[in-house]
Write a protein that binds this DNA or RNA. Structure first.
Lengths: 331, 331
DNA sequence: ATGAAAGCGCTAACAC
DNA sequence: GTGTTAGCGCTTTCAT
């Protein structure tokens, strides 16, 4: 182990100045004589001085750390959000703490409470908390939401209105007159928005929609969903997310049902895997990496202002047409 | 925003005791009169007191935070490591900071330096630093490695000796007399270990092996690898990782080559997607979640002891046989 | 068992 | 432009 690490005082002594000058040399370069600053920095470098973040935080009350909370770290949908947030944090010189809420609102609330003094703010993706819980927490520490809109705080959401229209138009262009929405968890905010959008878009097109589910938004949710879809006689299905869609397609393949020959399948998210499953999946791509980065930016800009509110940023979505959708077979 | 948060002094005042008593009530319950402690805790609860981690860290020098560094957060291989580490940290009451080193040794070194004062230790997965750089860094802050063995520090690695034997035995059982190893990045420690293991196992079986590459360990590395393999006339290939294997299989499909009919394909990692690509991929599964958790445990046990060294933990691997491997076609 | 008081390393007024 | 000096909130001797 190294000996005691050099402190501000060590650098100050070595450079023959006061500690405040050293501090300023780092944090307010303008307010220090250029030559003095050079000397201080040189001494700091020579001594291998690194500021102690705990001490900085204690004084300033700011930790230069933010937390990102996601329901499941291993879900590839959140990988993009995590990466984007990590980039955004790095750009802003912030440290990113990652928390997995295990899809539980209790765990989420506990994590917020545990970390609120250790971080300057939270980015919460797909929060399971109620609007009220979120707003209460936001009075203590700034919060920005990803894929969840709650009045009074910064939100970054995907444009599901446009996205669901794109999906419906695509299916209509292939001659489908109706489709089934294979729903995910009932509490999912994005699930509700997707379903609303699909209903509205279908109504405009004069198409008929039904909803099936809820199902687990995992590969294992696929078989039950597939069987329900088969029973319904649908020519097309739109699934809550890609993973569920892939699980559903696997089951359809097992049962000898051709995709897209007999049934067209559409997913949401364009996760890793959507372009190499079989058949490749037509899906609505979200800019998850952008979402993570923007959420951090939103948080950073509102932190210094100490304002609780924040505008909602809507990120574009785009339909990626692949092999799982095709024309209706007239029988 | 909330008013000033209650401090130790507020609680002490409210309970009519000294701050040191409040501090002890939390950290050394034994050394405080039972009734006093009850009263203090009640007041703390009533005021909504939460200790300020920065102040705790400043005094004690310990932050109760550890950092996990990975080359690429979006790589599904690391998702398991991240999840495991998150769990391990949560179990130990530690906060986990996540860093993405962007597959760059410079970024990794910078991140270590930037965080070393803010955390009590590092878990570094697939480190790109040299052994010397790692050992130097470890003298300042404890470090544990995942999938990288460096003498003198705690390491968690997969059992590639057993794993590569499993792969070779599997191919031999299907009648393959030779195979090609499709290599990843030259600097990859695990890549080197895999190749060593395969060579040794093949030699024992009297099989012939050649190496091709290096290739990008991504889907986009697949086409070049596939074409090289075709030119070689191999009956079986073992790829650096699953992603590369899937990219390679896609290219083979494009070129009308049947898998496993004409060529058998084996991957490493068993990442998300290996069970739904087409054909499903035979691959060597690693216990990545265990690895992450164990690495944190190793770090935690060595931190209090302030000992730099640490034993290497070897985690079992197992071959998952799926649809991408089959018998040699005699032509 | 409890209190008083000295810092931990740094920032921010406020002087000079 | 630079130095002096109070703390930030907590832990930890050292008394009592």
């Amino acid at each position: 182990m190294a000996d005691r690490r050099p402190t501000l005082a060590d650098v100050a002594h070595a450079a023959g100045v006061a500690t405040s000058t050293v501090s300023r040399a780092f944090s307010r370069p303008q307010r220090v004589n250029h030559r003095t600053r050079e000397r201080v920095l040189a001494e700091a470098e020579r001594l291998g001085y690194v500021p102690n973040p705990a001490a900085q935080a204690l004084e300033s009350g700011r930790t230069r750390t933010i937390a990102l909370l996601v329901p499941d770290i291993t879900n590839p949908y959140f990988s993009g959000v995590i990466k984007g947030a990590e980039r955004g944090a790095a750009n802003a010189g912030l440290t990113l703490v990652l928390g997995d809420t295990a899809e539980s609102s209790a765990a989420e609330a506990q994590l917020v409470r545990r970390l609120e003094r250790a971080v300057d703010g939270f980015v919460i993706a797909a929060s399971r908390l109620t609007d009220d819980e979120l707003r209460t927490a936001a009075t203590r520490t700034p919060i920005t939401l990803v894929n969840r809109a709650t009045a009074g705080m910064g939100c970054v959401v995907a444009d599901y209105d446009s996205g669901t229209h794109q999906i419906v138009d695509h299916l209509a262009s292939y001659g489908h007159r109706s489709f089934v929405f294979v729903g995910g968890p009932a509490e999912s905010w994005s699930g509700a928005r997707r379903w609303q959008g699909l209903q509205a878009a279908a109504a405009e097109r004069g198409m008929e929609v039904r909803r099936s589910g809820p199902y687990l938004p995992t590969l294992s949710g696929g078989p039950a969903a597939a069987d329900a879809v088969l029973a319904s006689g649908a020519t097309a299905v739109v699934c809550h997310n890609d993973i569920l869609a892939i699980g559903l397609m696997r089951r359809l393949a097992e049962r000898g049902v051709s995709v897209p020959g007999e049934i067209s399948v559409v997913g949401f998210d364009d996760v890793f895997g959507a372009d190499f499953c079989h058949p490749t999946l037509t899906t609505l791509a979200e800019r998850t990496e952008d979402a993570g980065r923007r959420a951090v930016e939103l948080l950073v800009t509102q932190v210094p202002l100490r304002q609780a509110g924040g505008p909602t940023r809507v990120l574009p979505t785009q339909l990626v047409v692949r092999g799982s959708t095709g024309p209706v077979t007239s029988m």
